[in-house]
Design a protein around this nucleic acid. Sequence first.
DNA 1: GTTTGACTTAGAGTTAACTCCAGGTGTTAT
DNA 2: ATAACACCTGGAGTTAACTCTAAGTCAAAC
Lengths: 128, 128
Amino acid sequence: MNIAEVSKKFNLSQDTLRYYERIGLIPSVNRNKSGIRDYTEEDCKWIEFIKCMRSAGLPIEVLIEYVSLFGQGDETIEARKELLIEQREQLIKRVEDMKKTLERLNYKIARYEQAVVEKEKTLKRPEN
Amino acid sequence: MNIAEVSKKFNLSQDTLRYYERIGLIPSVNRNKSGIRDYTEEDCKWIEFIKCMRSAGLPIEVLIEYVSLFGQGDETIEARKELLIEQREQLIKRVEDMKKTLERLNYKIARYEQAVVEKEKTLKRPEN
DNA sequence: GTTTGACTTAGAGTTAACTCCAGGTGTTAT
DNA sequence: ATAACACCTGGAGTTAACTCTAAGTCAAAC
């Protein structure tokens, strides 16, 4: 797969794909004889994983660390696990915070709905 | 309340409080005769609301719009409601995405836990 | 065989959201 | 009355995460 195909597949710009590789957010991708990236299935899995984690707000820096640990082999399994557990905790917290904010938004919107009804009443009264 | 107290109360830097006011993210705060901000309870409620919404990821730009609409009075009630509904929808989507990522993290961590066990087994075997 | 188009790299530019700084003013303590 | 301190403003600097640009290479089409 070339970069155009991968870009389309994951809806990430070619620039972003090159940027991710450059900073080590995905392991480096093989090139063909003329220097053009040739993405494997493995590469695609990484990209998909990283995209998913990024969309949930895990910082690039942390994910770079993860990829780097991965590249160092089995001795880093424990460290990778710890890293993921730490990120999971933070994610849980964020989700909980967002749920609370959501409740608050619901409440606020409900009050606005009430306000709109009130306003319509007063607007209509003169016509009656 | 002066800026130092408000800063402490909401755990926002004085710079951030001034910045929020400057860009219209909170309505402008009254000054005393010597030009120093004197925050009212109302001001504090705004700050708390904005902090909450920001922490859930609502963009500053949108919140500025909300504050601006609020400042224009009752004619903007409908528009404010629509804005909040739109943001709620996006928030719901983000929360759902994050939950999916959380599931994925759980799965990945579970596999790492398995891997750690396997590794311990092979490490221990020579000793037995 | 040269033009077109997709790719390459290195590095500069952008955006959102702060964060810091310089220079100035007003109140408080000595 | 002067030093210390908290505040003020306008504007510059920072950070994360892209995004764009310039200059170059290579394969394919005309």
